[in-house]
Simulated scan of single mutants.
Amino acid sequence: MSMRVRPHVARVLARTHTVLIPLDGTLCDFFRGVDTAAIANGIYEMLFSAGHRMSVLTAIEPDPLAKMGYAYSVGPNYGAQAEEMVREAELAAATTAVPASGAQEVLQACRASGRRVVVVGDTCSAAIEAYLDLHGLRHLAEAVVGREQRPVLSEWPGADLARQAVKALGAEPFPNSLVLSPPSRWWAPTRPAVGEQGCGDRGQTQALQGGQIHHLTVQGRGSHFNRVTTPRSILSVAVSTLSAHE
């Protein structure tokens, strides 16, 4: 694979020794074809049948994780029931998730160049591991960090999961690390996961450059690191540059 890589992207990758790769949206389209709103509605019905009433905006919330968090705010037993519903859906989705083009090459390039890989996700670890096993990728990841390793009512789950990834590798903080991910609620515009300096693109996501974690994000026009718009393009940047530095 070959493509033009901007010098600042190459410099970040050349210094990278550890790569944090989120599952959904980067390694794969995890919920392709899954009606996630139906999962959220199932949580609503569980709460409603237990006699709990909520606002209209909360009732129509289509994100199962947001609805699960709400269930935990109602009570730990409700939260645990909601989490089990989400977990069952995630284990089923692991069998139908669609791999991102270039994802396997990224993992292989990281392995061949001696980089450590952690697959992270706001998904249960069992589902992440099931996906990796199904596609023959588990041996390429040194660790898996899933949702149960962050606080159930985490305000910034990605930040908390990144910290857990640090601990999983037995180093805190580990130097020169890279996060490959699309823009999402993973990264807060004012709260870096690790490191002191944040460089956001129009306040949406962070490039964490405190000498510790660099966030190379899939983003639209005007990306800090490169003009990339899809997981495939960001993975291509990573593959070509990682391979060049084996």
Rank of each mutant, 00 (worst) to 15 (best):
H224T: 13
R53G: 14
R227W: 11
L137D: 14
T16R: 02
A93S: 00
L132F: 02
R147G: 05
P99C: 07
K67T: 15
G195I: 13
P189T: 09
G33A: 04
L65P: 02
G136A: 03
A238S: 03
K167C: 14
M85H: 05
G102Q: 03
G25C: 05
E61C: 01
A14Y: 10
Q206G: 03
V145E: 00
L180N: 00
I234Q: 10
P151Y: 01
P175M: 14
N226Y: 12
E83G: 10
G220F: 11
L137H: 02
A112P: 11
R87A: 13
P151Q: 03
R116S: 03
V239I: 09
Q209M: 10
E148S: 07
H135W: 06
A193M: 09
F225Q: 04
S125A: 15
H224D: 14
N226D: 15
V228E: 04
Y78K: 14
A71V: 12
V34A: 06
A93M: 00
L20C: 12
T26Q: 02
Q206S: 04
T229V: 09
R191I: 03
V106S: 01
V118A: 00
C110A: 10
Q212P: 09
L23N: 03
G136V: 10
A71G: 13
G114T: 06
S177R: 00
Q108D: 14
R202A: 14
I43R: 01
R138W: 07
M68P: 05
F31K: 01
A109Y: 01
E148R: 04
A130H: 09
V179F: 08
P62Q: 04
Q108W: 01
Y70P: 08
H52T: 11
Y70S: 09
I213K: 04
G170V: 12
A38N: 13
G210R: 10
G220Q: 13
E90L: 09
P64C: 05
T26N: 07
S181A: 06
R150G: 02
S113L: 09
Q81S: 15
A71Y: 10
L242D: 06
P7Q: 02
R115F: 07
D133E: 15
R150I: 03
D133G: 05
A92Y: 14
H135E: 09
V118N: 03
G203P: 00
E83I: 08
G158R: 03
R163C: 15
E129Y: 00
T123S: 13
R4F: 15
T58R: 09
N41E: 05
C28S: 08
A159V: 11
S73D: 15
L57H: 12
H17Y: 13
E142C: 09
V9K: 07
R15E: 04
H224K: 04
V119Q: 00
I234E: 12
L134G: 09
M1S: 14
A10R: 02
A71P: 15
G211S: 08
Y78H: 11
P231N: 11
H17K: 14
W156P: 10
Q209I: 11
V239G: 04
Q219L: 10
S181D: 15
S243V: 08
V166E: 14
V86K: 07
E246N: 07
L47H: 02
I128S: 00
Y72W: 10
